[in-house]
Amino acid sequence: KEWNEKELQKLHCAFASLPKHKPGFWSEVAAAVGSRSPEECQRKYMENP
């Protein structure tokens, strides 16, 4: 399903605030978004950083 504005906001906010070198980075991003898997978050971010 399409990403909504709130999900995208959470994605970018989590990406900006979490340490990128940490193992499980995308899992933490997904936990912050709440409604998406780590894979979905990574794919979406890579599509549209």
Rank of each mutant, 00 (worst) to 15 (best):
Lys1Val: 05
Lys1Tyr: 06
Glu2Ala: 07
Glu2Phe: 07
Trp3Ser: 03
Asn4Trp: 00
Asn4Gln: 04
Glu5Gly: 05
Glu5Trp: 06
Glu5Cys: 12
Lys6Thr: 12
Lys6Ser: 14
Glu7Ala: 01
Glu7His: 00
Glu7Asn: 02
Glu7Asp: 07
Leu8Met: 11
Gln9His: 13
Gln9Asn: 07
Gln9Ser: 09
Lys10Ala: 11
Lys10Trp: 03
Lys10Gln: 09
Leu11Arg: 01
Leu11Gly: 01
Leu11Lys: 01
Leu11Asp: 01
Leu11Ile: 02
His12Asp: 11
His12Cys: 06
His12Gly: 09
His12Ile: 07
His12Arg: 08
His12Tyr: 10
Ala14Cys: 06
Ala14Pro: 00
Ala14Thr: 09
Ala14Lys: 05
Ala14His: 03
Phe15Ile: 13
Ala16Leu: 09
Ala16Cys: 05
Ser17Ala: 13
Ser17Gly: 11
Ser17Met: 06
Ser17Val: 06
Ser17Asn: 14
Leu18Pro: 03
Leu18Ile: 08
Leu18Ala: 11
Leu18His: 07
Pro19Tyr: 06
Lys20Val: 06
Lys20Leu: 10
Lys20Ile: 09
His21Leu: 12
His21Ala: 12
His21Thr: 14
His21Arg: 13
His21Gln: 08
Lys22Arg: 11
Lys22Tyr: 05
Lys22His: 14
Pro23Thr: 09
Gly24Asp: 15
Gly24Trp: 04
Gly24Lys: 14
Gly24Pro: 03
Phe25Asn: 07
Phe25Leu: 09
Phe25Pro: 03
Phe25Met: 06
Phe25Trp: 05
Trp26Met: 03
Trp26Tyr: 02
Ser27Tyr: 05
Ser27Met: 09
Ser27Trp: 08
Ser27Cys: 10
Glu28Gly: 08
Glu28Pro: 00
Glu28Trp: 06
Val29Asn: 01
Val29Thr: 02
Val29Met: 03
Val29Gln: 02
Ala30Met: 00
Ala30Val: 00
Ala30Pro: 01
Ala30His: 01
Ala31Cys: 05
Ala31Phe: 10
Ala31Glu: 14
Ala31Trp: 04
Ala32Cys: 10
Val33Phe: 00
Val33Lys: 00
Gly34Lys: 09
Gly34Ala: 12
Gly34Arg: 08
Gly34Leu: 02
Gly34Val: 05
Gly34Trp: 01
Ser35Phe: 05
Ser35Gln: 13
Ser35Met: 05
Arg36Trp: 06
Ser37Thr: 09
Ser37Pro: 04
Ser37Gln: 09
Pro38Arg: 08
Pro38Asp: 07
Pro38Lys: 12
Pro38Ile: 10
Pro38Leu: 07
Glu39Gly: 11
Glu39Leu: 06
Glu39Asn: 06
Glu39Ala: 13
Glu39Met: 10
Glu39Trp: 05
Glu40Phe: 00
Glu40Gly: 00
Glu40Leu: 00
Glu40Tyr: 00
Cys41Val: 04
Cys41Trp: 00
Gln42Met: 07
Gln42Gly: 02
Gln42Ser: 08
Gln42Cys: 12
Gln42Asn: 13
Arg43Thr: 12
Lys44Trp: 10
Lys44Cys: 08
Lys44Arg: 12
Tyr45Asn: 05
Tyr45Arg: 06
Tyr45Asp: 04
Tyr45Thr: 15
Tyr45Phe: 13
Met46Phe: 15
Met46Gly: 14
Glu47Trp: 04
Glu47Val: 03
Glu47Pro: 04
Asn48Glu: 09
Asn48Met: 09
Asn48Ile: 12
Asn48Cys: 14
Pro49Glu: 15
Pro49Thr: 14
